[in-house]
Design a protein around this nucleic acid. Structure first.
Lengths: 192, 192
DNA sequence: TTGTTTTGGGAATGATTGTTCCCAAAAGAT
DNA sequence: ATCTTTTGGGAACAATCATTCCCAAAACAA
């Protein structure tokens, strides 16, 4: 038996970068062949077709970015500080990227969720995932008495998710760290 | 001389709807020929090529949507109410659309602004335009003493623009009027 | 009528799309 | 050595892509 020569994870990572940068329709199979450095035969045998490869790449992104965000949950002494850290982290990620690719999940939502049921469901789940992170921190803060119980924690979680999506959208054409910092400071006022 | 038979504005409107629904790369010239009901010769003579037609359609959208928003400036008795009306209007527009096309400018930002300088500039200008609407209302409110001068009006304007973009993004996969209402109510708290 | 201009039909372009297939080379296992 | 499996090269596919072109029909002005 011949051992596998190409690293599947490495190839998937490269595919993700390409789809992330140029979108689904903007990325051709030729782009992928060149980018991954694989032959047609190998690529099709490994990933079936373009659409399957895309879904796998998007799933890979979701797994990674979700776990990264959850690392931030334990940062900050108070719930309010943690919410701020979460938003700052989300902003930092898109600002740091020299290519301004934005958020791959948001990009896919805009480009495909209307006509691709699978992508649509992944987007909804991804949003719910982030919303739940905020919700978890907020309810904990309410129990501790750090955050008023006057406002519904679920509504606040949706609000912060919305702020995050705004930042991620703007990151495509106007990634400005200082502006995002101001936006986050104002968003945090919703906790007063 | 033979009089022009096809209505240019009507055709442009149809082209805008198509690009809006399926994106630039997702819309083929054949889609446009079928959708506009024009012959190849006529379409190319009138609009030069696909990219030019797209830019014209996006410009048409920008003109229309900008003027619609500015109609709301005079609604509401206080600045705070006007800001709320502005956000509610932006949410209402995307929620009403049965097709969930979202915001054409935001869609184009995500799909093209990275690789298309003209689109990028249009997006930046469009964002600035909306930001300025908020800024105008906010500074007026500050002069009237309705809004605290502790916060920078420019920062607040960027914050509300960000909230609007979040709503417009989410409208693609999750247009929920009630959720948007909650989000807007919390965003308004930034004015306290 | 003649002339001018607009439109549509349709053929033709060359490039690119995603995908399938065959076969030889490579690399390890036996 | 043979066997098995993985990989790459490259041809081939039909479909679609954006675009150009020619010409006849249509509609108005003179």
């Amino acid at each position: 038996m011949r051992t596998k020569e190409f690293n599947e994870d490495e190839a998937l990572e490269k595919a993700m970068q390409l789809f992330w940068l140029k979108g689904y329709n903007g990325t051709s199979m030729q782009d992928l062949l060149d980018g991954l450095g694989l032959s047609r035969s190998t690529l099709y045998r490994a990933y079936i077709d373009k659409h399957s490869l895309f879904l796998k790449a998007l799933g890979h992104y979701q797994q990674f970015s979700s776990s990264e965000i959850k690392k931030v949950i334990n940062e900050g002494d108070t719930a309010k500080e943690t919410v701020k850290k979460l938003l700052e982290f989300i902003a930092e990620v898109v600002v740091q990227d020299q290519q301004h690719k934005g958020c791959f999940m948001l990009n896919s939502e805009i480009e495909l969720s209307l006509h691709d049921k699978v992508v649509h469901d992944m987007v909804v789940n991804s949003d719910q995932d982030i919303e739940d992170v905020f919700y978890h921190v907020l309810t904990k803060g309410q129990k501790r008495g750090e955050i008023s119980k006057a406002e519904d924690a679920r509504a606040m979680a949706k609000f912060f998710l919305n702020t995050a999506k705004g930042i991620r959208a703007t990151a495509k054409s106007n990634p400005d760290k200082k502006v995002f910092k101001d936006i986050i400071a104002l968003a945090i006022k919703a906790l007063n």
